[in-house]
Simulated assay, not measured.
Amino acid sequence: MPAPRRSGAERPGRYAPQPVSWAAYTETARRLGEILHGERARVDQQAARDRRLRTGADELAHRLAVQGQHLADLAGTLRLPQPQVGNVAPGPVPDPAEALRRGAVAADAADAAAAEAHARAGRPALLPGLPPVARNALLYAAAALLGSGVSMLLFLLSPGDLGRIPWQLVPWSLCGLPALAFFAGYLAIGLLGRPRLGGGGTRSARLGGAICFLGMPLLWLVFLAATRG
């Protein structure tokens, strides 16, 4: 009697699929959904980060362009060499966010240096803490003292008795040297007593004239009276 034939599920060597429960199927679907959601969130975060970096780079580029123009204008006003802006080799910073941060820090430092240069240009090189009138008076007085010293030295070196008035020095002592002292003080105020920015006010010409054309002859007369006994 022939043996009964086996069905396909009962044949040896063939894979028989196992039934999947509904709970296992839903768990697998939930895990796949979480993975997909996480991947989408990561992609969205990366896109947002790229947009922020692109915006930050554009803002920094605009700031550097404005800053470069400001530095060029400031250098021209201060009669200084033009700054070299750009053409800088990129540094080894792999993180774009860190590179932007360093760029912003460097731009802040450049702004601070420009502000310091502008502030220093608004102060005179000589005696910056004094008011303009007091500074001008000191410069005129220094020039007048120097001129008076020259006048007295010429008097001492002139031939003849010290008790005799050297009439050949009178025009120089009363007019020539005071005029030279006045113009020396006027020039010194223009070179050292006035800031490069802001003007710095007047040169106090009337005050300088009074110091040089009145003070120097008075000192010379006092010197003559002292030498004549």
Rank of each mutant, 00 (worst) to 15 (best):
G86E: 05
R120S: 13
S204M: 01
D95I: 12
G56F: 01
G122R: 15
A113M: 11
H37W: 11
T77R: 15
P83A: 07
R6F: 03
P96E: 07
P131Q: 05
A210Q: 08
G147N: 07
R135N: 11
S204W: 01
S158C: 01
R194L: 14
A75M: 06
I211K: 02
Q18C: 11
G103H: 13
A142S: 09
G163P: 01
L60I: 07
F223A: 05
L187V: 05
G190C: 06
A184C: 14
G147P: 08
G208L: 04
L187M: 04
T77Y: 03
L180H: 01
L64K: 11
G193K: 03
R196G: 05
A47L: 10
F155N: 03
P2K: 14
A144C: 13
L192W: 14
P94K: 07
R164G: 01
W22K: 05
A57M: 07
C212L: 04
G229F: 00
P81M: 10
A41F: 00
Q67W: 10
G193A: 02
T77I: 12
V85S: 06
Q45Y: 00
G76S: 09
A106C: 02
E34I: 04
W22I: 05
L207Y: 00
A104W: 10
W220N: 12
L221G: 09
